[in-house]
Design a binder for these strands. Structure first.
Lengths: 349, 349
DNA sequence: CTGAAAGCGCTAACAC
DNA sequence: GTGTTAGCGCTTTCAG
């Protein structure tokens, strides 16, 4: 495979000159540049990334770790972050953990092996071990929800409370009195793990409901293990058997997908019989039947924050920051006014 | 950041020894190994991937390029390939093209910069330029549908014909006489591009229908630009305005998603009024209302073929192969028998 | 504006 | 078993 020497030889210049044109410095005379470019093209020269990164001692690479690339929410985030990073002249390498805390550590180590200049950790699960590792290697990072902010760590706090409050309020305003919250957690055996965002969402729900208690609002929470859709489906079946409710909020859109399915299987109509709200506002929401009302986490804004934090820290040594990301409720057709004079769930007995 | 020298010094050994234990050779005495391991842990040593890959002159890295990581089908493939690769001791780096032929070339070049030892190109779009580039750099590759097989290129031919034939036959057996095929193509301006898999699916549909012509089966094709769901939605609206049909096949599941939505908007019931079949069998199918009958492309099998081809070529210099991947029809609830005595689409006028 | 040469951190012969 | 050492291919002063 052609090396920089070959190009230099063919163009009749030194490797330093080739390096200069490859890296877009304007210190090369136009004529020389053309010769070099021609040689590059002729030899199909493609710089060895390992050699150049090693020599340079620094990379323009950001790392991104997500829990599950198959979940559209994570996929959309990965896409948005990649766009942002490219705009700033960075590449991004993405890793996935399958919600495993061990895989998280492995992924972080891999990223450090890659000498990423900054790392975004947008996972549901967490492992304090990685903080130590990152600090040891002076790798700036931005987290989602995890509250530690210092010279190199930033944190983006997603306003679950605000989003869930809006969702609950919306349901209350529609006349719903009994609201169900449907949760999943990724894996049975890892129940002890701290799936922070899931916990935060749950707390947010409880807090929101509390604020409406005086108005006679009641709530229930059902939880099932497993991947989102399956968990949602199982949970809603259980809820239909045991609980009374006229509205439900799913902890994430994939869960809502399962809930919708379960409801449908039992002949419960959405939104006539039960109103349903999802969380994340994946592109899917728009195409479900009925289109799903969902709490939106603005991806583009999130990606911008993430990359901005990282780049500022890397390039200007700015310290980490605590950022807040607002959420909003996107109303579609899965929610409607509670039918007058009808008891919650009376028809599912 | 700790280097191999630091570890060697702390452990009182040479860098060669450290390298040996890091790379899991058994040529190191247990006691020495322990000392080295302790030093590694103490210094949080994490090998510089660039240095080691450069020195090694080879990588255990496979590349994967897909068209759109947000599409669940591609995401699932990426996941499956990663699993397979890990099992064989390879890492994988994934890139995305957004269906752009230029981005394809850029992605391939990046992969070559990474010196991947093999590359899987699972994209809808194609650009002959990359064949040349890959050949020039002696990078083995496996393609989807593109028929060039030689010493280093393999090809996995997905049996669209079989899958679509099964879908059409199934509809015919249910009594449907007028079958619609709904296509999308990723972008208006790139209409000239060769989205091979899309073309193959279309041809497969036409061929299948031809075989039933004697039985009085008629067909129509509608096409809209843009990303799957939107295209599907627009297309089906147009079809409802202009065409007669009692069953539809979507060229891909995201398109089916849009079709389902459009049908719903117009009050057309699935499957009572129109039967619908998707293509790819994403996990979504199961959770749509109604659950979507879809042609399945076995992901795990595909991933296994891909990684196997690549690894065999890399490790044993086996020449490329032409593989066939069978498809099958997964029947769910979006298809049903054509109502007796009812004209196709009579109720949508 | 261009070239010579000293590394970047690690691996793999080859010696001991 | 373990150490010595010459590269891997590129970047980057520093001279010229």
């Amino acid at each position: 495979m052609a090396r920089i020497y070959d190009v230099a030889a063919l163009a009749g210049v030194s490797t330093a000159t080739v390096s200069a044109v490859v890296n877009g410095q304007n210190t090369v005379e136009a004529k020389t540049r053309r010769r070099v470019l021609a040689a590059i093209k002729r030899l199909h020269y493609q710089p060895n990334l390992y050699a150049s990164n090693l020599a340079r001692g620094t990379t323009r690479l950001l790392g991104l770790i997500v829990s599950d690339i198959v979940n559209p929410f994570f996929a959309e985030i990965a896409y948005a972050i990649r766009e942002q990073a490219h705009a700033r002249g960075y590449e991004v390498s993405v890793g996935s953990t399958q919600f495993s805390r061990e895989d998280l550590v492995a992924a972080v180590k891999r990223m450090i092996g890659l000498r990423v200049s900054g790392l975004a950790i947008m996972t549901t699960e967490m492992n304090p071990q990685i903080l130590e590792i990152l600090r040891e290697h002076r790798t700036p990072a931005v987290f989602e929800d995890v509250g530690t902010v210092d010279a190199t760590f930033s944190n983006i706090r997603i306003d679950y409370e605000g989003g869930i409050f809006k969702a609950v309020k919306y349901l209350v305003d529609l006349g719903h009195k009994r609201i169900l919250f449907v949760r999943s957690y990724p894996d049975v055996e890892r129940q002890g793990s701290s799936f922070l965002s899931l916990r935060l969402r749950t707390l947010a729900f409880q807090k929101a409901v509390r604020q409406f208690r005086s108005e006679g609002i009641q709530s229930e929470i059902v939880t099932c293990p497993g991947p989102g859709p399956r968990a949602g489906q199982q949970a809603i079946h259980r809820a239909l058997d045991q609980l009374r409710f006229s509205a439900a909020i799913a902890i994430a859109d994939p869960v809502a997908l399962g809930v919708l399915r379960g409801l449908h299987q039992r002949g419960v109509r959405v939104p006539q019989d039960v109103s349903l709200i999802g969380f994340d506002n994946s592109y899917l929401c728009e195409y479900l039947c009925p289109p799903l009302t969902s709490v939106n986490i603005p991806r583009a804004k999130l990606a911008e924050m993430v990359v901005d934090c990282l780049v500022r820290n890397v390039e200007n040594k700015e310290p980490g920051r605590e950022l807040q990301l607002e959420t909003d409720l996107i109303v579609r057709e899965s929610t409607s006014r509670m039918a007058e004079g009808r008891k919650s769930r009376v028809r599912f007995r």
